[in-house]
């Protein structure tokens, strides 16, 4: 009885949470999974569910989809790593070096692009990266480039657009994590003999790990499903799975096949995240094991010089 009350009490209290999860996550995903077993009967119907099969999955698992998936994975992994490489120093600078009263302004500047439509932002890069655009002209006039800039409609362009579009999603959690570590812990580290770099690698970054992980997830997962950046900046190279899914839903109006692609994309993405998380945990375990301080073994008395204070102090009050 107490258990049931606890369960129902908790459920009632957390209604907004589970209702949100139910209506905005579980139901839509369940619907997509359901559609993926259907088929498109004719041009006027997006899906039919009277004959369920795995045929759409067989259609999806063709070399065409898989090679696009690998290209997507490559763009996403490289994009996430680049966001991390840019985001870490920036967030560190923002959280550690910038005067607190200026931080909010700078953070707001990071977010300014988010106030603009995603598509428009990306189109901006199309204009910037064009062979006859201003960047190309500038690079040529200062002699950095022999001919016109030749990266629009390549994977490089998609990569640039992706980093630009998702960088704020990396910086925010990184900043929060590094800010949370606080000046006192960095001072403690310096106090104990660690310089700036050692403090960064032994305190600030390890403490920012949750932020790094969430930043990577926030960038990687939506990136795997992105299709706008690739559509606008990518050409024959740099096409992404999101475009295939979108074209099934919108152009071809084949919801069954689109759903199957979406489900495969979700599964593959989760698998990639799980793999990365597993590797991360393994690395952490190995690292901690290697650096473990063993206080159990009473080593040989080479510790004569290592005696801090000899025996334990004990007082009546403190023995509690």
């Amino acid at each position: 009885m107490r258990l049931s009350r606890r369960i129902f009490g908790t459920a009632a209290l957390s209604f907004p949470t589970w209702a949100y999860v139910l209506f905005f996550f579980i139901l839509p995903v369940a619907l997509v999974v359901w559609y993926s077993f259907g088929y498109k009967p004719d041009a006027f119907t997006t899906h039919a569910m009277d004959q369920l099969s795995f045929d759409r999955y067989a259609e999806v698992m063709q070399p065409t989809f898989l090679s696009t998936f690998l290209a997507t994975l490559r763009i996403s992994v490289v994009g996430t790593v680049l966001c991390l490489l840019i985001g870490v120093p920036f967030a560190y600078w923002l959280a550690v070096k910038v005067r607190p009263e200026r931080r909010m302004l700078l953070l707001a500047l990071v977010l300014v692009p988010f106030w603009t439509n995603f598509l428009v932002r990306t189109l901006g890069w199309q204009i910037i990266l064009a062979p006859e655009g201003f960047l190309s002209g500038m690079l040529q006039s200062i002699g950095l480039l022999g001919g016109p800039l030749d990266i629009l409609y390549t994977r490089t362009a998609v990569q640039i657009g992706v980093v630009y579009n998702y960088l704020p999603l990396m910086i925010l959690p990184l900043f929060v994590a590094m800010d949370r570590a606080g000046a006192t812990l960095r001072e403690a580290s310096r106090d104990l003999g660690a310089g700036r770099w050692r403090t960064l690698f032994q305190v600030t970054l390890p403490m920012a790990m949750p932020g790094i992980a969430s930043g990577c997830l926030l960038v990687f997962i939506p990136l795997m499903g992105d299709y706008v950046t690739a559509s606008v900046l990518g050409g024959a190279q740099g096409s992404m799975v999101g475009q295939l899914v979108a074209s099934q839903f919108n152009t071809a109006q084949n919801w069954a096949l689109g759903s199957a692609m979406a489900v495969v994309l979700i599964i593959f993405t989760l698998a990639a995240v799980a793999l990365a998380a597993g590797l991360g945990l393994l690395a952490r375990w190995a690292f901690q094991r290697y650096h473990r301080i063993d206080v159990t073994a009473d080593d040989a008395p080479d510790s004569a010089g290592a005696d801090v204070g000899g025996t334990a102090i004990t007082t009546e009050g403190a023995s509690r």
């Binding site: 206080v295 009473d298 510790s303 005696d307 204070g309």
Partner: peptide, 10 residues
Amino acid sequence: NNRVREALEM
């Protein structure tokens, strides 16, 4: 290891 142990004992 030794010094940490001793410090913790302390």
